[in-house]
């Protein structure tokens, strides 16, 4: 797939439609996000590991006033870009999305709801993919079990802000998680459960289920469980699935009455 992609990107570059390509570059065995501006560099392009490409696009578009870029996107990256666009953080007109699908292993690891973008440029998307229901075990718990579970999990937090920093949907300049009104400064672990509840609530209608937060967490807190449960709630309560539909606004901020 990698070779096929490189060929595709070379053609795209040659067309002159884009000023560069946002993708991962392999350097000394490490991958880093990179803006490929020259076809010769494409040899170093790599696809793994997963990386929140939408955040890269957001920062890059912010820097440069008018240029158009191509971006190599997985399903989650595309969802993130859509949500960022709704919040005016990226201009989709300035991006050419080059969609790639995830393989089964990757998809399973993320419990991804849709491990492929809307248009797959290269590779073949998984057929009949059904994500694992990671919320199931938690929904079945009694209230006190849930409380004990999260008490145990969230006590591991060392407030490194890795979950927030990795999150492609976190674009605020000031973060409420650093506001001493809500989250006491100089206290570890953060008071249960305000830090994680605020973060989860802020992601309601926003989380696109990329799993970056959980991967970033050094304490292995199953953050995606909370986010997934809220994603389900948003769908159940309002029929809203973040990352889909370019026009749908997060119902939490619209004027309509709840049905």
């Amino acid at each position: 797939m990698e070779q096929e992609l490189k060929a595709h990107l070379k053609k795209l570059m040659a067309s002159g439609d884009v000023a560069g390509i946002i993708a991962l570059k392999s350097e000394r065995g490490m991958a880093k996000p990179y803006l490929f501006a020259d076809a010769s560099e494409l040899e170093c392009l790599c696809l793994t590991p997963k990386y929140p490409m939408a955040s890269v696009a957001r920062l890059l578009l912010d820097e440069d006033g008018a240029a158009r870029f191509a971006i190599v996107c997985r399903g989650c990256d595309e969802r993130a870009l859509r949500e960022l666009a709704k919040r005016h953080q990226v201009d989709l007109d300035r991006l050419v999305i080059v969609g790639i699908p995830c393989d089964e292993e990757m998809a399973r690891e993320c419990a991804c709801p849709e491990p492929f973008p809307s248009v797959v440029a290269v590779g073949t998307k998984l057929e009949q993919w059904e994500a694992e229901d990671i919320g199931a075990a938690y929904r079945a718990m009694e209230l006190d079990e849930k409380l004990a579970f999260w008490k145990h999990q969230l006590e591991k937090c060392n407030k490194c802000y890795g979950c927030r920093n990795a999150c492609p949907m976190c674009f605020c300049k000031d973060c409420e998680l650093e506001n001493a009104l809500w989250v006491k400064h100089g206290r570890l672990p953060p008071e249960f459960p305000i830090y994680h509840m605020i973060r989860a609530f802020h992601l309601a209608g926003k989380c696109i289920a990329c799993g970056e937060c959980q991967r970033a967490c050094p304490s292995d807190i199953p953050l995606m469980v909370l986010n997934t449960l809220l994603r389900e709630d948003m769908e159940e309560l309002f029929g809203y699935v973040s990352g889909t539909g370019a026009d749908a606004e997060n119902p939490l901020y619209t004027k309509e009455e709840m049905q």
């Binding site: 849930k146 509840m197 609530f201 709630d233 119902p251 939490l252 004027k255 009455e257």
Partner: peptide, 25 residues
């Protein structure tokens, strides 16, 4: 304020779910 209460309604609906997920009635 025309429709502020609708946002309250939606916000509280989600917050109630979130409380439940964390084990708070």
């Amino acid at each position: 304020y025309v429709d502020g209460n609708y946002r309250t309604q939606k916000r509280i609906a989600v917050l109630r779910r979130l409380l439940e997920h964390l084990g708070i009635d």
